[in-house]
C-alpha cells in the first residue's frame, strides 16, 4: 500500500502549482507575477521583508473550457494575509472575470501591518464577488494549512459555492483571536481537535456553511471544482432572508 503515491496533495503544492493543477492544463496566464515586483511598500519600514507577489497569485485560466479568473493566496507569506497590493490584485481580476472565478483561499484575513488598507481591499473583493456571482459561478476552495479566517471568510461566504477538505478550516475569528477575546474557557487555541471540530472542513460541510467536502487530493479537487461550475451560478447564500429562515428554524421556542 502506498497511500501517498496515489494522490497529489493540495496542501503540499505551491499556489501556482495549485492553480496549474486545477485549471485546464497549460491554460493559466498569471498577471503581475513576482518579476513584476508589485510588492507591499509598507512592510520594509516595519522591518518585514516583502514577498514579490505580495502573497497573492492571480490571472486568467480555462476551467472546463470557461474563461475564468484564478486566484490563489499564499498561506506561507505572513499567514496568507491580505494587504493593499494583494487585495487589489484579487479585486481587479474578479472585476474583469468573464465566465466566473475560483479562489484558492489560504488566508488569516487582513494583514495587520496594513490595517485599513487591507480592510478596504477586502471590501472591494466582496463587492466584486457579489457582482460577478450574479452572472457566473464564483467558487472558493478552502483546503490549505492556514484555512480561511477574518475578512476573507466573509468573502468566501459570499461565493456561489465553497469546497473544503478535512484539513481546511473556515471561520470569522481564528482560534488565537477567540482565545484572546473570549478567554481560554471558551476555546484553548492549542486544542487542535476542538478547533477542527468547530471550524474544520468536515464540520463546516455538515453545517451547510460549506458545500462540498473532498480529500486533500488535487485530482478530486479539480473534479469538484468543475462540478461546482456546472451547478447553478445563482445559488443564494448569505442573504438576509436565508439567515432569517435559518434563525426561525433553529432558534429555541
Amino acid at each position: 500500500m502506498t497511500p501517498t503515491a496515489l494522490r497529489r496533495s493540495y496542501v503540499e503544492s505551491t499556489p501556482r502549482e495549485r492553480i496549474a493543477a486545477l485549471a485546464d492544463p497549460g491554460s493559466f496566464r498569471e498577471i503581475l507575477d513576482p518579476f513584476a515586483r508589485c510588492s507591499s511598500p509598507y512592510l520594509a519600514e516595519q522591518g518585514v521583508v516583502a514577498q514579490r507577489d505580495d502573497g497573492v497569485v492571480v490571472g486568467r485560466a480555462l476551467l472546463g473550457g470557461r474563461d475564468v479568473a484564478a486566484v490563489a493566496v499564499d498561506g506561507r507569506f505572513l499567514g496568507g494575509s491580505i494587504g493593499e497590493i494583494g487585495g487589489a490584485k484579487i479585486a481587479r481580476v474578479l472585476e474583469r472575470a468573464r465566465d466566473g472565478a475560483f479562489l484558492l483561499l489560504d488566508t488569516g484575513g487582513i494583514r495587520l501591518q496594513e490595517a485599513n488598507l487591507g480592510l478596504l481591499a477586502i471590501a472591494e473583493i466582496c463587492d466584486a464577488i457579489v457582482a460577478l456571482r450574479e452572472r457566473a459561478p464564483v467558487v472558493a476552495v478552502v483546503a490549505g494549512r492556514v484555512g480561511c479566517y477574518g475578512g476573507m471568510s466573509v468573502a468566501a461566504a459570499l461565493c456561489s459555492q465553497i469546497i473544503m477538505s478535512p484539513v481546511g478550516r473556515f471561520g470569522l475569528n481564528g482560534p488565537e483571536v477567540v482565545e484572546q477575546e473570549a478567554g481560554i474557557e471558551e476555546l484553548d487555541a492549542r486544542d487542535r481537535p476542538a478547533i477542527w471540530q468547530a471550524t474544520g472542513g468536515v464540520r463546516r460541510v455538515e453545517q451547510g456553511h460549506a458545500d462540498v467536502l473532498v480529500e486533500d487530493d488535487l485530482d478530486e479537487l479539480a473534479r469538484a471544482l468543475r462540478d461546482a461550475f456546472r451547478a447553478s451560478p445563482n445559488r443564494e447564500r448569505l442573504s438576509l432572508e436565508r439567515l432569517r429562515n435559518r434563525f426561525a428554524q433553529e432558534a429555541p421556542r
Partner: peptide, 28 residues
C-alpha cells in the same frame, strides 16, 4: 522563481542579466 518569504525559508528570483556578471541582492 522558487521559495517563499516564510519562517526559515526564502524567495529567490533569478533572471538573465543585463550584462555579463552575477549580481545577488539580498533582503533579510
Amino acid at each position: 522563481h522558487v521559495g517563499a518569504v516564510a519562517s526559515g525559508n526564502l524567495e529567490v528570483l533569478c533572471e538573465p542579466p543585463a550584462e555579463a556578471r552575477a549580481t545577488i541582492v539580498v533582503s533579510t
